[in-house]
Design a protein around this nucleic acid. Structure first.
Length: 263
DNA sequence: TCAAATGTTTGATC
DNA sequence: GGATCAAACATTTG
């Protein structure tokens, strides 16, 4: 569920509760989500102060006195402040001000402690909101293949997922199957501009709630009603009236307007 | 019963 | 070294 705008919204909504607070106790329930060992991880976190909370792409980092708490929401992860623990609660962080729960139905997410930042987490490209056009274009030119799968490749730039890849390509009028090598500098500029515009607009609306995404306060996002193509297969294009098409590209559903986004 | 779901990793193949 | 594709992970929902 969570792509860059949703993760940004989660970070913004958890920060006021957790910044500068002390982790009094931690309960960890899932060896899938917490791979470094449940007891060991809980013990390492106990007593540490949260110095900073930040995001890179879809990754969340709680910088601590010593080391870092890494959280990735995967497909169905949620961070909830003072929520009720349930069947899918995978972690509970008891702070001196309240409790932060990590819920995750499918358990594709991660809650892990690292004494220092591991290389594996650094293997991502620049954040989609931070990368300037020059670097974006330079990185684009090092790749081939199709544009949509490249946008989903987090080592190219990080933060974009299936919703915002489709929306950005629609805004830039680029077909999802367009060959990366055949994208001109001008078109690349339009794509870069579109990515920034879509992500900023989505953040303003606190993300997209497609099924059950909610922020830390349990509030849904509002950007889903502004989607132009994602989840709108068979409906008419807001720009030209043609019917939005759904195909599968790189094992992901892909939505586009066959008239606005010519091959 | 089957398909699909906002993500990532791994392994096979070209 | 790439790119591509399928599968896997686990669960719910329509």
């Amino acid at each position: 569920m969570p792509e860059l705008p949703e993760v940004e919204t989660v970070v913004r909504s958890v920060a006021p509760h957790a910044l500068g607070r002390t982790i009094l106790d931690v309960e960890l329930f899932s060896i899938r989500v917490t791979r470094g060992g449940l007891r060991k991880t809980a013990a390492a976190l106990r007593g540490l102060v949260i110095r900073d909370i930040r995001r890179r792409g879809k990754q969340i980092f709680f910088d601590l006195d010593r080391g870092v708490l890494y959280i990735h929401l995967g497909m169905t992860g949620k961070l909830l402040w003072d929520g009720l623990p349930g069947k899918h609660t995978r972690a509970a962080f008891h702070l001196d001000t309240g409790t932060l729960l990590y819920d995750d139905v499918r358990q594709f997410g991660r809650v892990e402690f690292f004494p220092e930042m591991p290389d594996s987490l650094e293997r991502v490209g620049p954040d989609a909101l931070q990368v300037g056009f020059e670097e974006f274009y330079a990185r684009l030119k090092k790749h081939s293949g199709l544009i949509k799968p490249l946008l989903l490749n987090q080592t190219f730039i990080c933060g974009i997922g299936n919703i915002y890849a489709d929306e950005a390509l629609f805004a830039a009028r680029i077909h999802p199957r367009a060959s990366v090598r055949r994208i001109s500098e001008k078109r690349a500029k339009e794509l870069h501009d579109s990515i920034l515009a879509i992500l900023h607009a989505a953040i303003e609306h606190r993300g997209s709630s497609i099924s059950d995404y909610v922020d830390t306060a349990g509030q849904r996002g509002g950007f889903q009603v502004l989607h132009c193509v994602y989840g709108r297969a068979g409906e008419s294009c807001t720009r030209c009236g043609a019917l939005i098409r759904r195909i599968v590209l790189g094992q992901r559903s892909t939505h586009y307007c066959p008239r606005c986004q010519r091959p």
